[in-house]
């Protein structure tokens, strides 16, 4: 059955028509054409499709599109405004946290979910926050460092404000 829904993604409203069983992941990728959110397993096991929904990181393959109506969603495309990188993205670039890059958008969104709640995490907090995100390339060390570095940058920016 088709449902006409309206999704709030990255501050924009999208009116789309989806099936009852359309995943939020597929709505984002195929209906909104926002392909930064990656499809890695469709079973909630790899975290590549992580988006922020109402302030929390979620696997968008574990949410139905119709369930997401009324929620505020941020995808990787909504993280940076214009040309300026978000500090998490900047830290990922600088710390060598990116290799093949396929897990990166999900990893960055999980980091965002963490830092929004806990601005000064320790390594243990970071590992817990990305426990649902699989990376086959990096061995996670540079990712952990990047998230620590991002937290520092964000805290510095806040001080300046």
């Amino acid at each position: 059955m088709k449902h006409d829904i309206s999704l709030n993604v990255n501050g924009e409203i999208y009116n789309i028509s989806v099936e009852s069983d359309t995943l939020l992941l597929d709505a984002i990728r195929n209906h909104l054409n926002l392909t930064g959110t990656k499809d890695g397993c469709r079973a909630g096991e790899c975290g590549a499709c992580t988006v922020i929904m109402d302030g929390k990181p979620v696997n968008s393959c574990m949410v139905l599109a119709v369930e997401a109506e009324g929620s505020v969603i941020t995808t990787i495309e909504g993280l940076n405004n214009g040309e300026e990188l978000h500090p998490i993205q900047k830290a990922f670039v600088e710390e060598g946290a990116v290799q093949c890059g396929f897990c990166t958008p999900g990893m960055v969104m999980s980091a965002k979910g963490l830092l929004d709640k806990n601005p000064s995490p320790n390594t243990k907090d970071i590992r817990k926050a990305i426990r649902g995100n699989v990376c086959r390339c990096t061995g996670y060390k540079k990712i952990e460092k990047a998230i620590l570095h991002a937290a520092e940058m964000i805290n510095e920016d806040k001080k300046l404000d």
């Binding site: 930064g36 990656k38 993205q89 890059g101």
Partner: peptide, 19 residues
């Protein structure tokens, strides 16, 4: 040196085959 493809990958702009 930062990777030459890192910014596009970290912003989700890199288009992989499934995209």
């Amino acid at each position: 040196m930062p990777r030459i493809d890192a910014v596009q990958k970290a912003t989700g702009q890199t288009k992989y085959l499934p995209d």
